[in-house]
Design a protein around this nucleic acid. Structure first.
Lengths: 334, 334
DNA sequence: TATTTTAAAGTTACCGATAACTCATTATAC
DNA sequence: GTATAATGAGTTATCGGTAACTTTAAAATA
């Protein structure tokens, strides 16, 4: 590999002069600058960012940790983050925790070892606390994405899970539904708790009693609710509508329903949090509370970079991005 | 940040001893090892991989460059690559070129600057040649994913675009279609050329003349074919079926058709290359030639790591992964 | 007891860049 | 014509590790 010393030798200057040309620092005569640049091109010089990071104590790398790379919400978020990072001149190191605390921990160690300048962190859940504390202990700035973690104060970009859930359930109630099931994420994830609360509040406001037998808790990522669903449907008074707490769960539920010969929305209505992008473009079917995923990523980077650069950002900032009720055809009046 | 020198001092040994403990090299007494390890834990030591990379001349980072992070084919591929990388002990640096040669070039520079050990490279198209040559000039091993680039010999994982296209078109012909349109990617992408060839061959074999007015070329990623589609549909003898060269194009086409009040498959049949994952789970509608995307990524990493480690891998290896015709309901007999 | 061997730990130089400083020249001022 | 300033370039030390070699001390052998 070509180094600044190779350049220096061939251009008959010192390494320092080359460095100055590269970084546009110090005083360099036009003539020397041209000469050095010419040699750099001839030799196809590419700076070694490891060496650079070592002395500068910064890498110009940001890390993005998400929990499910096949979930369109997170890929859109990733795209927003990527565009943002590029715009601010950072490289982006992706990680995918698969909603798994151990994988998440491994990524945190890697992040620390890479000495990234900051992290966009979508926690797997409440137990991410330890991993976040580790980042904090090492003074790595981070912005928490999508899910709050009790015990950690930090910059944060979240959706309005509670409000979004309420809107969805309100909508179902407006259609005449009274027996509304909730297929929720695991309760150690803040969004699942809030969506549950929104669900409960919407029911309470309409005087509909909360029925725990209508509620299933699941991992957001792996849907296999067969047994639970069975239970749900074979009640004396089964639900007429299902609120799935995210897109992946909704797809799983609908698939399972269809396998049982139950039609959506004719036999049962289904709505969920988060949109499906391509699916919805192909077939505007699912009624959803859509979140501005791209913006999550873009704004997250913005907060993060401000935090990294700005000494003037005192307390932690929380951004709540609204979700939008998109009514399509997966829910019908009872 | 804590360094090995801090550890060394507190443990009353030399830095070299600490290094040896970390890497399990050299001779270290059990006692010293324990002492050093204890101090490392106390101080929360995390090795600086930049410093390490600098002397070792290798980073344990692989890079994955894809062309569209919102396309499920590539996200599944990414997941395979991620799992593979983890398994072999590498970190993974993602990049997303958006089918754009300039973005691609920027990523190549970043890759070079990061001194990654190898690259999984899904080229934007034929003009990626320059970018690949740059990698080669710098001796970075790479495996080309999905799309061949004329002028570059290298390890490669591809699908069987031609055969898959032929199967799809054969299927349409079998349903009685004779006027079959092709909404293709840009012809400077190898898969688009091969899918075109497969399409043409399938027609030829059945003695159906190729009609250039039935063919549209487009960017794989941004569908906005309004004008073209208009032209297609307002022919004296419009197509009864459309073969879209990838999933994103198919979704775009179907959306546009619906906006015009044209029903799929009642009024026109549509099939495409690549599956839609979540969409298809939600609603098994699109008939597709599905590629094993996860395997693309996993095998790509395998080839790459073998190339990096193995001195014994002589000429370049090409893996062709078959695609599977998945018949659903977006195409009907004429 | 003297010598060799071996185990365990330490020294030194270097990876490729940059910060901070120093050193020549030349230009400007008095 | 000397003092001072401005300009352009070079020296040196350092970032945090590791390879290759050396040193030290204890154990094994003669």
């Amino acid at each position: 590999m070509v180094t600044i010393y190779d350049i220096a030798q061939k251009a008959n200057v010192s390494a320092m002069t080359v460095s100055k040309v590269i970084n546009n620092t110090g005083r360099i005569s036009e003539e020397t600058r041209r000469k050095v640049k010419k040699v750099m091109e001839e030799l196809n010089y590419i700076p070694n960012s490891n060496a650079r990071s070592l002395v500068l104590q910064q890498t110009q790398i940001l890390s993005l940790l998400i929990t499910d790379i096949t979930n369109p919400f997170y890929t859109s978020l990733a795209r927003g983050a990527e565009d943002g990072a590029k715009q601010y001149g950072y490289r982006l190191l992706f990680g995918n925790s698969d909603e798994d605390y151990v994988k998440e921990k491994d990524y945190v160690d890697m992040i620390l070892s890479t000495r990234v300048d900051g992290v966009l962190f979508a926690p797997a859940g409440d137990l991410s606390l330890k991993n976040l504390e580790k980042l904090r202990a090492h003074n790595i700035p981070f912005v928490i994405m999508d899910r709050a973690v009790p015990g950690i104060e930090s910059d944060m970009i979240c959706g309005d899970s509670k409000e979004g859930a309420r809107k969805l359930v309100d909508y179902l109630i407006g259609l005449g539904h009274r027996r509304i099931a909730l297929v929720n994420g695991s309760l150690d994830v803040s969004t699942a708790r809030l969506r549950y609360e929104g669900y409960a509040e919407a029911l309470a406001l309409q005087g509909i009693p909360l029925d725990e037998t209508l509620i299933i808790h699941q991992n957001y990522r792996d849907y296999h609710a067969d047994d639970h669903l069975e239970q749900l449907l074979e009640q004396p008074s089964p639900p007429t509508a299902i609120f799935a707490a995210n897109n992946v769960l909704a797809v799983g539920v609908i698939r399972d329903l269809r396998e049982r010969g139950i039609r959506v929305p004719e036999d049962i209505s289904v709505v969920c949090f988060d949109d499906l992008d391509l699916s919805s473009a192909l077939d505007p079917f699912l009624t959803v509370a859509a979140q501005p995923a791209y913006q999550f990523g873009a704004m997250g980077i913005q907060l993060l970079v401000e935090r990294i650069r700005g000494s003037s950002v005192p307390e932690s900032r929380k951004v709540i991005l609204p979700s939008e009720l998109v009514i399509r055809s997966s829910a019908k009046p009872i």
